[in-house]
Every structure is written in structure tokens, then in C-alpha cells.
């Protein structure tokens, strides 16, 4: 596909870029902060967390920056009061949906959800906690899957399929009952597809997936390593 130069406006700034890129990519290149959770550079974007919603002039709906391609003369607003309000609600809903207790979480201090809460200045949660009864799968020799901390961003599912090619992870059930499952909902340790590579663990933004060898407060994930890997593989081609 041929690239054509185009000019657009984001938050009042005039920006030159090329066609074929997403709003999110263009914003990142120009140091415009867009909050994301389900996005991980290099893997397919799904527009599920709805944190990256932006206003586009002439479009009645809010559009997810990660899945919307830029167009010439687009006028985009990324941080209006309305968008900030919605980002805050999304964050609160994430926090209220499952059992996110930072003080006893392995990812405390290294968690993207925790960082998001700081970013949107979430000082309290206005919705009742749902406190669901969630399982913890410790059957894998190296890693743990703790559904209590999962926000169903599906980064693990996509990394496993698109980067590792193992297709171990999938999603089951509907609504707030959705669960990340290994194979056909078998314990992770009994998976016949998992290659124990650990990419899903690195990709996971919260304390839902973590290596057993780590103690609380010591977890340091490197999701950018996945993006790096994808970049370097592309260069080889």
C-alpha cells in the first residue's frame, strides 16, 4: 500500500504523518498521551478496554484510537472533560469488577492497572465492589494464573497466538463471567499446547499472570520485550 502524506490536528496541534497508521501510533510519535490497557505494540488491536477513546470532529461516536486509522484533515481531541470522565469510570469499573487488592498483590508497584489509577487520579471507587469468587490456577510448574487480578484485556491470548503461535489461551463465558482459559478449560499445567515460553506473563498488565519464582513486590514484567521481539522479527524478513 502506498503511503500518502497527510496533515491532521490533535488537541489543537497540527501534525504531519502518513496514511495507514492508527491515531494511537501517531499520538505516541508526537508525545501525546493516550491511556491504554488492551493495547500492546505489535499485536492486533481489538479496541476492548475503551480507554483510548477519542473525539473526532464530524464523527458522532467516540472512536478507539488503537483501531481507527488517521485520515487527512482529521480533527481529534484526546483529553476533553468528557473523555477524562469516561476514563475514570472505566478505571473504577476495572477496579470494582474483580479482587484488585494492591497491598497483597504480587504486581504491586509494577502494575499497569495501578498506574492507570494514578493517571486518572482515582482516589476512591463509586461503585460497589463485586467481589467475585475467582479461581487461582497454580498447576503450571513455572507460572500462576490468578483470575482475581485479570481484567480480560486478552493480551495473553493474542501474544500466545500471534507471537508464540501456541494458541494455548482463549476466552470462555460471557459478561462478568468471562474467563481466560487454557486449552479447553483444562488446568494450565495440563495444557498440551503451552510451550512454557512465558510471553503471556510478560504481556500481562496486572498480577493475573506471574512467575512462581518471584516474591511480592519483586515482579517486574517487560511487555516492551514482546513489542521488541516483533519489531526485530519484522526486520529479519
Amino acid at each position: 500500500m502506498s503511503m500518502t502524506k497527510l496533515t491532521l490536528q490533535i488537541d489543537g496541534r497540527s501534525i504531519e504523518t502518513e496514511s495507514g497508521r492508527t491515531i494511537l501510533e501517531v499520538c505516541k510519535e508526537n508525545d501525546i498521551t493516550i491511556l491504554t490497557m488492551c493495547h500492546l505494540k505489535g499485536i492486533t488491536d481489538v479496541g476492548a478496554c475503551r480507554l483510548c477513546l477519542v473525539e473526532i470532529e464530524g464523527v458522532s461516536k467516540l472512536m478507539s484510537a488503537c483501531t481507527t486509522k488517521v485520515a487527512d484533515k482529521m480533527i481529534i481531541r484526546t483529553s476533553t472533560e468528557k473523555i477524562k470522565r469516561y476514563q475514570r469510570i472505566t478505571t473504577e469499573l476495572f477496579a470494582a469488577e474483580r479482587n484488585h487488592v494492591c497491598s497483597v498483590c504480587i504486581a504491586n508497584g509494577h502494575c499497569e492497572l495501578q498506574k492507570l489509577a494514578y493517571d486518572v487520579k482515582m482516589d476512591h471507587i463509586r461503585y460497589p465492589y463485586l467481589f467475585p469468587q475467582c479461581e487461582v490456577d497454580t498447576s503450571h510448574p513455572l507460572y500462576v494464573l490468578d483470575h482475581n487480578r485479570c481484567i480480560v484485556c486478552t493480551r495473553c491470548v493474542r501474544v500466545c497466538a500471534e507471537v508464540e503461535g501456541a494458541y494455548n489461551w482463549d476466552v470462555m463465558n460471557r459478561g462478568t463471567n468471562v474467563r481466560i482459559i487454557s486449552d479447553f478449560n483444562t488446568p494450565w499445567g495440563e495444557s498440551i499446547t503451552c510451550s512454557d515460553c512465558g510471553k503471556c506473563v510478560e504481556a500481562c498488565p496486572t498480577g493475573a499472570l506471574w512467575p512462581k519464582a518471584v516474591v511480592q513486590g519483586q515482579l517486574n514484567k517487560a511487555p516492551e520485550f514482546i513489542s521488541d521481539l516483533i519489531e526485530k522479527r519484522k526486520m529479519k524478513l
Binding site: 475503551r50 460497589p128 468471562v178
Partner: peptide
């Protein structure tokens, strides 16, 4: 259950 507003919002 894919997007947060619908998944958690409808429940709330």
C-alpha cells in the same frame, strides 16, 4: 464480555 463498559457497566 469483550469491552469494559458493556461487561461491567451493564452488571452495575
Amino acid at each position: 464480555g469483550k469491552c469494559v463498559p458493556c461487561r461491567v457497566g451493564t452488571k452495575m
